[in-house]
């Protein structure tokens, strides 16, 4: 049992490192992703100008920037396998579960890296104050985890479609809506300096959403991948 689980984790990490290394070499999605986030942030910042906004609107704008940046970059993880025609080879060498886990991990790292860039910029450019930093961090990490869990399987679906275009955002939005509503409310609470117990309800919803989507996408990935 011990050896089995260790080979599984080593396979997942090997797949993750493969994507990570090829990303560092080719910069397939990272550069565009970061630039897209910066551009959206600039657009938001310019359109606001000198107005001072409430923290509620700022938290909404923050997650709109993250949502659209994620939409522009996270689908690449499967699309690049289809475009490079490497998905068949991948099917031969690894089980669907380990492929999905590797891709999930890679998308999560990508999104967290993006957020490390966006958060300071957002704080500087829009004067976004975060009074309860730890609550903010919990909401951000749990929100990203939930976002990645539900978008990675949609990325796998979209990669198999013949017309990709805007399909990723169209398919993701209805599924992500409960998550978005909750993270916006949680971010707003954290930015106003609410205590942990006040934000607990949002964290509970985020946690259950993440667990449900994680399990569902793991179960359903087989069907997307097998053909």
């Amino acid at each position: 049992m011990g050896t089995k689980s260790s080979t599984w984790t080593s396979r997942v990490s090997a797949l993750f490192l493969k994507d990570f290394k090829s990303e560092l070499r080719t910069r397939y999605s990272l550069d565009a992703l970061v630039m897209f986030a910066v551009i959206t942030l600039t657009v938001v910042s310019f359109s606001i100008g000198m107005f001072s906004l409430s923290s509620k609107i700022k938290s909404s704008l923050f997650w709109i920037v993250i949502f659209f940046s994620a939409m522009s970059g996270l689908a690449q993880v499967f699309i690049k396998e289809e475009e490079a025609k490497t998905s068949t080879l991948l099917k031969l060498v690894a089980s669907p579960e380990s492929i999905f886990a590797g891709k999930l991990l890679y998308n999560l790292v990508l999104l967290l890296f993006l957020e490390i860039i966006i958060v300071p910029l957002f704080v500087i450019m829009l004067g976004f104050s975060i009074l309860n930093f730890w609550l903010f961090l919990c909401v951000l990490v749990l929100g990203s985890l939930g976002l990645v869990c539900s978008t990675t399987i949609i990325a796998a679906i979209v990669a198999k479609a013949s017309v990709k275009g805007a399909l990723f955002a169209v398919l993701s939005f209805p599924i992500l809506l409960p998550l978005l509503v909750t993270v916006i409310s949680g971010t707003n609470l954290a930015s106003e300096g609410a205590s942990f117990s006040q934000g607990l309800r949002d964290l509970q919803i985020l946690f259950s959403y993440t667990v449900v989507m994680f399990v569902a996408s793991f179960l359903l990935f087989d069907f997307v991948w097998e053909e």
Binding site: I153, I154, I157, P174, I175, M213, A216, F223
Partner: peptide
């Protein structure tokens, strides 16, 4: 295959909307 997977995924998220 793909639309069946999407249909199930979408159905799972609906209960969350009731709370959120």
């Amino acid at each position: 295959n793909l639309s069946a997977v999407y249909s199930i995924l979408a159905f799972i998220t609906v209960p969350f909307l009731v709370f959120v």
